[in-house]
Design a protein around this nucleic acid. Structure first.
Length: 331
DNA sequence: GATAAATCGCCGAGATACCT
DNA sequence: AGGTATCTCGGCGATTTATC
């Protein structure tokens, strides 16, 4: 899952230079965007349920392979857990975990937090004594790195800020690129490379769609029990859009306007899904977490609970949009 | 086949919720 | 209020799985 981190940061428009090979503990990298540079040390494990009789709403990372957490001098240190099922990272405060570690210590996070983070982009969990843990969706990870200290002090406003306006600006970038049709340069190594990157993302997307459609059915197409009919319709549309984009990119000289329309379509898809999901999570308004969880559970269980693939699909579609935008900049 | 990582099962202290 | 049940949190170590 270390590559998920790199993918997530790149998707947010940062360039990433690895300072250690992928998969090492800790992994170190430098990320740069608009003249801002961050050196980041990353500890990451999978989030698992602890097993045994503990609450099924509780997940954790189990720290292995290191003696203690060491903070990155002149940089940021991340302690992350990745959950495939929720499509979100858990992020813990490294500044509070610098002491000696036991033989296999663990750090916990609640299911509620992960769900809310997947829906809203980021969510807070008060662990008491002034410590805050977060759940962060991949597209907000870079933002979390930037605002890490505020986040662990309990303020995630800057991480949550302006997703819509950012997305709208995506639309403007797409439109501008498409409008600028003076001369398209196809066939450069860079362009072909980016085209390949897009196709790879489409492939991953198709894989997730297949997983979603066949989930639980052992070969039988069983989505009605998994998802409401209109969601299936949306995912089917997404399949069609992906397939048509694939066809266009296979051409020697793709129709840039069509690719642009495709990017906008995926942008809309991501926006729409994230809107419905966050509405479901916010449904309970100001009531306590538990009640909120219960109220949202019915609505959201079908969306991200049972069907982890759908969360993935939305995240992958987000990455696809970014990849297309980059390509539009190259042609 | 060795090593690291992931997964699993269980424990006990302390906090919190619940009931009468 | 007091007692009890349940949950949270951090812990240990065994076993399984992945990687080189």
């Amino acid at each position: 899952m270390t590559d998920w981190v790199v993918t997530a940061i790149k998707s947010a428009g940062w360039s990433v230079k690895l300072m250690s090979s992928i998969g090492t503990h800790p992994m170190r990298l430098a990320m740069e965007r608009d003249g801002v540079r961050e050196v980041v040390r990353i500890y990451i494990w999978n989030l698992t349920h602890g097993g045994g009789h503990r609450s099924k709403h509780e997940f954790r990372v189990q720290i292995t392979g290191i003696e203690s957490f060491e903070l990155e001098p002149d940089g940021k240190t991340l302690i992350l857990g990745w959950s495939d099922d929720f499509g979100a990272f858990a992020a813990f405060d490294a500044g509070r975990r610098t002491g000696a570690l036991g033989s296999s210590p663990s750090i916990q996070v609640l299911e509620t937090t992960l769900k809310a983070g997947a829906a809203d982009g980021a969510a807070l969990q008060n662990k008491g004594e002034g410590e805050f843990a977060l759940a962060v969706r991949p597209d907000r990870l870079a933002s979390y790195v930037q605002h890490q200290s505020a986040a662990h002090a309990g303020d995630i406003r800057s991480i949550l800020a302006d997703p819509e306006s950012e997305h709208n600006s995506d639309d403007q970038v797409i439109d501008a690129a498409v409008a600028d049709i003076s001369e398209h340069r196809f066939g450069s190594a860079e362009e072909l490379e980016q085209r390949r990157a897009i196709l790879e993302r489409i492939k991953a997307l198709e894989g997730e769609v297949a997983r979603l459609k066949y989930a639980g059915g052992r070969g039988h197409n069983n989505p009605p029990e998994l998802l409401p009919a209109e969601d299936i319709a949306a995912v089917t549309e997404l399949e069609e859009e992906a397939s048509s984009l694939k066809g266009e990119l296979a051409k020697v000289e793709p129709d840039v306007a069509r690719v642009g329309r495709s990017a906008r379509w995926f942008r809309q898809f991501v926006n729409a899904w994230r809107r419905t999901k966050s509405e479901a999570v916010k449904f309970g308004g100001k009531v306590a977490d538990k009640a909120r969880d219960k109220a949202a559970e019915l609505v959201i269980a079908t969306v991200i609970g049972g069907a982890a693939a759908l969360g993935h699909i939305v995240n992958l579609a987000e990455g696809l949009v970014q990849a297309i935008i980059k390509w539009l900049g190259l042609v």
